[in-house]
Amino acid sequence: MTRTPTALALGLAAAGSLILGSAATATAAPAPVLPAAGSTTVTPAGHAFKAQLTGKATLKAGSVTVTCSVSVATGTVPAAPGNHNPAGAVSSPISAPTYSSCTSSMPGVTPTVTTSGAWTVAMQNGSPSTGTMTVPTGGLVVRTSGLATCTVVAAPTAPAPVTATWANGAPPTLTFVNASVPVKVTGGFGCPTSATASVFNAVYQVSDTTDPAQQITVAP
């Protein structure tokens, strides 16, 4: 038997296999049965929120790491009953996150991060709960100037989901740990043009901007 796995981007793996053998003996293994997604409720319904970076966000492509110390995104919890899904995630649009105060691991190189397009976040209750941010096609671009002129485009051919861990609290947090996103890198000397994926790390604190005394909460 020869098995050829194919890893898809963002750590969301799908695999296919080619099974070789005689017609009499070759048997394909049954596809695994995935558990159904659980119920999710995001509260307070209809409240606006802001996700603000705490610490630093890093985006690493090949040997080059871009570090940003300021990042913000905003959105709104869907109004009831849209803030509840009995069998899956609750999704809502968010603003394209902004990134500023960025530096590069390459000496003499200055990065600029721009974002655009329709971004979304889908909250799923679980153990742990998760928040999946979808980057629209070409929705994040890193350009460098100085000793190396490079362009890194995230989600270059299709929208890309990037999953974080959600923790309820005061404030709640959304934590991305080594989250992978597909990229296309172009440029000259010093640019990591062979890189096809970037690793993203960041922690965001989420606040309720409609009523700062309340907390955005993900529950069953």
Rank of each mutant, 00 (worst) to 15 (best):
Thr74Phe: 09
Ser95Ile: 01
Gly82Arg: 12
Ser69Glu: 09
Val70Asn: 15
Leu18Val: 08
Pro81Lys: 05
Ile94His: 10
Lys50His: 00
Val66Glu: 09
Gly55Trp: 13
Ala24Tyr: 07
Leu34Glu: 15
Gly75Ile: 01
Gly16Asp: 07
Ala79Cys: 07
Ala26Tyr: 03
Gly82Cys: 03
Ala28Asp: 10
Ala26Lys: 01
Thr43Leu: 13
Ala48Ile: 01
Asn83Glu: 01
Leu53Pro: 03
Ile94Val: 15
Ala87Tyr: 00
Val66Asp: 04
Leu20Gly: 10
Val66Trp: 08
Val42Thr: 10
Val64Gly: 02
Ile94Tyr: 11
Gly55Asp: 06
Pro78Asn: 04
Ala23Trp: 00
Ala61Met: 13
Pro35Glu: 03
Val64Leu: 15
Ala28Gly: 04
Ser17Gln: 11
Thr41Pro: 03
Ile94Gly: 04
Ala51Cys: 06
Val72Ile: 09
Lys60Thr: 15
Ala48His: 09
Gly21Arg: 03
Ala61Trp: 05
Gly82Thr: 04
Ala61Cys: 04
Pro44Leu: 12
Thr54Asp: 02
Ala14Leu: 10
Thr65Cys: 04
Ala57His: 02
Ile94Met: 12
Ala61Tyr: 08
Pro35Arg: 00
Thr54Leu: 01
Thr27Asn: 08
Ser71Asp: 10
Gly38Phe: 03
Val72Gln: 11
Ser69Asn: 06
Pro81Cys: 12
Ala73Gln: 10
Pro93Arg: 14
Val70Ala: 15
Lys56Glu: 13
Thr43Trp: 14
Ala31Asp: 13
Thr74Met: 08
Cys68Asn: 13
Thr40Phe: 11
Ala87Trp: 00
Ala89Arg: 06
Ser95Ala: 09
Thr27Gly: 00
Leu34Cys: 11
Ala29Arg: 14
Ser92Ile: 00
His84Trp: 01
Lys50Trp: 00
Ala48Glu: 09
Gly46Met: 08
Ala37Asp: 14
Lys50Asn: 09
Pro93Gly: 15
Asn83Pro: 02
Pro86Tyr: 02
His47Lys: 01
Val72Ala: 14
Ala51Val: 01
Ala37Gln: 13
Val72Gly: 08
Ala13Asp: 12
Ala28Lys: 10
Thr65Glu: 03
Ala73Asn: 11
Thr43His: 12
Pro93Gln: 14
Gly16Pro: 00
Asn85Arg: 11
Gly55Glu: 11
His47Asn: 14
Ile19His: 06
Pro93Lys: 13
